[in-house]
Amino acid sequence: MAVEAQEANFFTTKLDFIVNWGRKNSLWPFPYGTACCAIEFMSTETSPYDLSRIGSEYVRFTPRQSDVLAVQGTITYKQAPILKRIYEQLAEPKWVIAMGACATSGGVYDCYCTVPGIDNIIPVDVYIGGCPSRPEAFFDAMFEIQKKVSDESYMAQRKERLKEQWELLQAKTAQAKQELSEYSRAKAQELKEKAECLKNTAIRKAEFWKENP
């Protein structure tokens, strides 16, 4: 993987293809079910609809093992920090589906307690309408995410990520250098003052003993 991807060549395009093929056929959903859309998601998993046809049969109930956060249902203000935390715990790469009217826009709950759409909290890739959404709509969203995945470039992402990390590292190094120079300057000043003070004391002592032998 130590290849610098300056421009697309045979190796990088084939690697992108393989990585994307692997990713898009094993999208493991994390169901954040708070309302009736979660029931529709359950029927999406059963054999009449069979989500495992596109490789998503593993529903992981921990954010650390899943790729797709499927938010199914109403999100209240009391729950918003929890959803945000779970999104932050998802490992990269991650995608988000807002399923149903409530997750998309708050739905009929236009009041003091409901978040008007989860895109106030976290970025969303695909929105599905419906109250609740049909299992076919969930399939459609998964196909959209598959399309999105197959357009991505692993090498380009890696390049961006490395660039980001390099910039961060540079910024941190510069900051550390700055701090060090400030600290050393302050220390030098302090030492200089101390030396001056000692010198003055010595001179005063010498004068004293000269006057009072």
Binding site: Y77, P81, R85, C111, Y112
Partner: peptide, 12 residues
């Protein structure tokens, strides 16, 4: 109380 006054929660 205004029915649409929404209040964010900072932490869980």
């Amino acid at each position: 109380y205004p029915a649409h006054r929404r209040q964010w929660l900072s932490t869980n």
